[in-house]
């Protein structure tokens, strides 16, 4: 307690406070600017047409900005990547933390982290030249540039995040839990599946949410391998067809737009929609986390 009012302590506290405020301030400013430019767009275009329109023809006369197929495209790619990445990621994390011998874990963990360092454009290129033709032939598709292709590559990108964080969560479950469970006569599998994983569940959900965040915000990969066609996904079969995503639309069109034109503002509105979707996902994640904590 004696040091709490020393100049060094106060300085440190002030710096930490300032960085906290700055981080929140930057996010708030991003939101304000997105909102401002989106409002400029919505003054000239109806919100309902924007969110429910089924066609995206931004450079036509008159332009049509129907975002619905693009929102669904983004969600579709993200769902595919989660369906692939979550079981694989959590399974790998359980294996590393509970089953793998020590030397193997020490070997695999850094290797998995290296995967996170591969630039997304490289993964996109591999997806475009190897995975897309393979999927087209293997599944007999019209084209290999599909939501499935994008989802697979995104899953690969999200895996290191999910594995690393989930493994940390599982490893930090206290030894006493395992010993207690084993002492009561549970098998190793029962201990892992009924005691250790439930105890680490909030950490595992955090890992999954970060993985989802990585997938929905990724741009380069989806631009290269999903085909970017703003087709309305009407059934589950759309997974095997091309889709256009929110991030891909902004990245591809922002370079061309005339500064402060309607199209320019429309892309900010697309950004706002992406921001809100991410926000909702985070909010649901927090909600789920709290529920688990309360039920413990």
């Amino acid at each position: 307690m004696s040091g709490s009012n020393s100049p060094g302590e106060r300085l440190a506290r002030w710096i930490i406070f300032a960085s906290g405020v700055l981080a929140i301030g930057v996010i708030a400013l991003i939101f304000v600017f997105l909102l401002r430019d989106s409002i400029s767009f919505l003054q000239t275009y109806s919100l309902v047409d924007f969110l429910t329109g089924r066609n995206w023809y931004p450079i036509s006369e008159p332009p049509v900005y129907g975002l619905l197929p693009i929102i669904l495209g983004s969600l579709l790619v993200t769902v595919v990547s989660i369906v692939i990445a979550v079981p694989l990621g959590v399974g790998t994390a359980v294996y590393l933390a509970e089953v793998a011998p020590g030397w193997l874990r020490e070997l695999l963990k850094p290797l998995i982290e290296v995967v996170a360092a591969i630039p997304s454009v490289v993964l996109g290129f591999i997806g475009l030249t190897l995975l897309a033709p393979f999927l087209q032939q293997a599944l007999g598709l019209d084209t290999g540039l599909t939501a499935l292709t994008g989802g697979i590559v995104l899953a690969f990108m999200a895996l290191p995040t999910i594995i690393t964080i989930a493994e940390d969560a599982i490893s930090s479950v206290p030894r006493a839990h395992r010993q207690g469970s084993l002492a009561l006569g549970a098998t190793r599998w029962q201990t892992t599946s009924r005691v250790v994983v439930p105890a680490a569940l909030s950490g595992i959900s955090a890992a999954v949410m970060l993985g989802i965040g990585r997938a929905i915000g990724e741009t380069m990969v989806v631009l290269m391998v999903t085909g970017n066609a703003a087709v309305m996904p009407t059934s589950l079969g759309a997974v095997l067809g091309p889709v256009r995503t929110l991030t891909g639309t902004i990245a591809q069109e922002m370079g061309e737009t005339v500064f402060r034109s309607q199209h320019y503002y429309a892309l900010f509105a697309v950004g706002l929609v992406l921001f809100i979707i991410t926000f909702i996902i985070n909010w649901i994640a927090d909600f789920v986390l709290h529920r688990f904590q309360e039920s413990e």
């Binding site: 995206w56 197929p69 290269m224 087709v231 091309p242």
Partner: peptide, 16 residues
Amino acid sequence: DSKGGVEYAPEALLLP
């Protein structure tokens, strides 16, 4: 006709 109004099919893949 630059104002002809015919559009690419929505199914068209737009490649970068």
